[in-house]
Design a protein around this nucleic acid. Structure first.
Lengths: 194, 194
DNA sequence: TTGAATTTAGAACAAATGTACTAAATTTCA
DNA sequence: TGAAATTTAGTACATTTGTTCTAAATTCAA
């Protein structure tokens, strides 16, 4: 039955392993259905990519919801939430490995991402001020620096996978560990008492 | 004469403006020569991309040479050299906007880049230790944090353009200014006396 | 159970693309 | 100047790709 879901799963697997130039024929063949059938469920290739991006955003929103319910924010919870978000990044890694091309091909995705970033920027900045007030972060950091830190975090988040792909090519757990260490280090010089 | 150079210039312009899916027919048409002629000079499309990448690396090496000749290193020279390197990044921006795809299509490029990163990592770390010794940077930063900072700088360097393309889409001078501010902010919390 | 709706496979089509081939034009240089 | 080398335009071809179409098969519902 839910062929539509199976198509998404097969597409995600192939996009992650073979890149964004994977064709609908390849996807269909990989799950032993016809290309005609695939296009019955998703008229355009980009519809598949758009749907996968929507699932990604939904998973991120789910994570963010969890974090905010958790009550008070500590450095430990922040780090844990980076770890969880990496799992999502990695699951949908083909999107980040080909982000500009996907954003150009599917403008809906670019627009949605643009809005997502704007939303998250405010949340993160508020969080940092909270942690500074709580004595976890330094109190002598000017506002523009906090803003810049948020952007740095986003860039490292969304493009660490690309850098990794072009250099060390760590996989799975090793990738997660290297990423986690890098994000931790990003916050280190802002700590009130290192 | 020098049709080979003209092809590179036309290709760079089109890749930057239309993306990596630009075809040899488009490139040839944009400079009013035949596709046959273009392929006489560059047998394979990827040869053009490879050559452009080589020029990029050469320009970077040129910059690094300048910096090292300049004698003692200050925060001001470091910042100036970031500014210059942005000009090169921007000139060849299509490479960074489609880095993973290019690296996959042309393994030579991925390998060359991998080596470049390893080389630069050592240079940057030495530089930071030098600036810490000179009292510009803090002396209480552990070694892994300096290593992480170098990686952060590389990611921001190589992928700021992608982030910009997916969000604000700043061009020219505005792009350069936003980039410069972000890199400056990256170093801020490491300063001995902010 | 039977008729309608849905799903499927497979063929077919048009556009795009990289590149090879050929013959003409142009340049080089002895 | 005239032959050889280089450069150029244009055509042609094979492949790939997204998508549509048709008819058969399957599922669903009354």
């Amino acid at each position: 039955m839910d062929t539509k879901e199976k198509i998404l799963a097969a597409a995600l697997k192939l996009y992650n392993s073979k890149g964004i130039n994977t064709t609908t024929r390849h996807i269909a063949a990989s799950m032993s259905i016809s290309a005609g059938n695939l296009h019955y469920h998703y008229k355009h290739t980009d519809d598949i990519i758009r749907t996968l991006y929507e699932k990604l955003e939904a998973e991120f929103d789910g994570l963010m919801g969890n974090v905010q319910e958790e009550g008070e924010m500590s450095l430990a919870t922040l780090n844990r939430s980076f770890g969880q978000s990496f799992q999502v990044l990695y699951k949908y890694r083909f999107i980040f490995l080909h982000f500009v091309e996907i954003g150009t091909r599917v403008p809906d995705i670019r627009n949605a991402y643009h809005q997502l970033v704007k939303r998250r920027e405010a949340e993160f900045k508020a969080l940092f001020y909270q942690l500074a007030a709580a004595g976890v972060f330094r109190k002598d950091i000017p506002d523009e620096i906090w803003s810049a830190l948020v952007t740095q975090i986003f860039i490292v988040n969304d493009y660490w996978l690309s850098m990794n792909e072009m250099t060390d090519r760590l996989k799975g757990k090793e990738a997660a560990a290297a990423y986690q260490q890098l994000v931790n280090a990003l916050l280190y010089p802002y700590l009130a008492k290192p």
